[in-house]
């Protein structure tokens, strides 16, 4: 690791201080993935500024080499996920005045993923897990027929489409946050949304719930709802995706009444095929 002392500490400071309205005590994690430590800074803050503004000022004035991932600054790209005062949040959507006044603001990288440097983490685990989601295969259509979907059939899925892939739900999920050993077996809340989309799609021919259980480790989830609590898009991940998928799995795996129905319909299908 490059020693902190060796890194360039600051870019030339901004000269116009006329609109500065206060200062904030910031405690920022500095490290390179193998070692690290919190470093304290005092930074100017103006009214209405968000944590990302303050981090940018910190970069500009005191820590030119501070690594932070950001992009849209509007809560829509999901890049600036980090842990502010211990809670997973988007730095661009966390206003400084909403944090406890007079207290030091702790800023740390997402805990569930390996740190690349400072506040930037390697989130490739999530993309790897996303590969386990099968491609949507639509029901076959007859010649000249077009696929039509009613609004009420897809409203449920549209909630899941709001996901901005900030991966804070993945980060806060204790199944992997506290247990690295579960990562091979557990896909995480973001991927469960994908499985739910696959399974609830009105024209889908696949059983997303089966993949979610067998490959995604849905059974690991103990529905403690932290994923829903931290979602910046207010997607009800647990209530509208994970629990419905658990119920669908219960249909398939733990419901003898449904098994009887399945056997009956399988026999019916077999009879129809024989007739053909």
């Amino acid at each position: 690791m490059t020693e902190l002392a060796d890194r360039p500490t600051a870019l030339p400071a901004a000269t116009d201080k006329s609109d500065v309205q206060g200062t904030a005590e910031m405690r920022v994690w500095r490290g390179d993935g193998t070692t690290g430590q919190f470093v304290d800074y005092t930074v100017d803050v103006n009214e209405g500024e968000v944590v990302l503004d303050v981090i940018h000022r910190l970069q500009a004035e005191q820590a030119g080499d501070l690594a932070v991932r950001w992009n849209c600054k509007a809560g829509k790209c999901g890049s600036c996920s980090m842990e502010i005062n211990g809670k997973p949040r988007l730095a661009c959507m966390t206003r400084m005045e909403t944090l406890p006044k007079g207290e030091q603001v702790t800023v740390a990288p997402m805990r569930a993923f390996p740190v690349i440097r400072d506040l930037v983490t390697d989130v490739s685990y999530n993309y790897e897990k996303m590969k386990s989601v099968p491609e949507l295969k639509l029901a076959e259509r007859k010649e000249g027929e077009v696929h039509r979907m009613a609004q009420e059939d897809i409203s449920r899925l549209q909630e899941f489409h709001k996901c901005i892939e900030c991966f804070m739900c993945q980060n806060v999920c204790h199944v992997i946050r506290d247990h690295d050993e579960n990562k091979p077996a557990f896909a995480g809340p973001r991927v469960f949304l994908k499985y739910a989309e696959l399974d609830m799609h009105p024209l889908s021919t696949q059983h997303g719930e089966k993949v979610a259980y067998d490959e995604g480790g849905l059974g690991y989830c103990n529905i403690t709802k932290c994923c829903s609590e931290v979602c910046p898009e207010d997607i009800h991940i647990t209530d509208n995706a994970i629990i419905p998928m658990k119920e669908r799995i219960a249909d398939r795996k733990f419901e003898p009444i449904v098994w009887l129905g399945d056997i009956r319909s399988a026999r019916k299908d077999a009879k129809q095929q024989k007739k053909r």
């Binding site: 993935g33 690290g36 430590q37 470093v39 800074y41 740390a108 390996p114 740190v115």
Partner: peptide
């Protein structure tokens, strides 16, 4: 305000964070 390390901060996890 120079950057100053916090002596008693939490040790890093194997993932590199606090």
């Amino acid at each position: 305000e120079a950057a100053r390390p916090v002596p008693n901060g939490p040790a890093p996890t194997p993932r590199g964070g606090p």
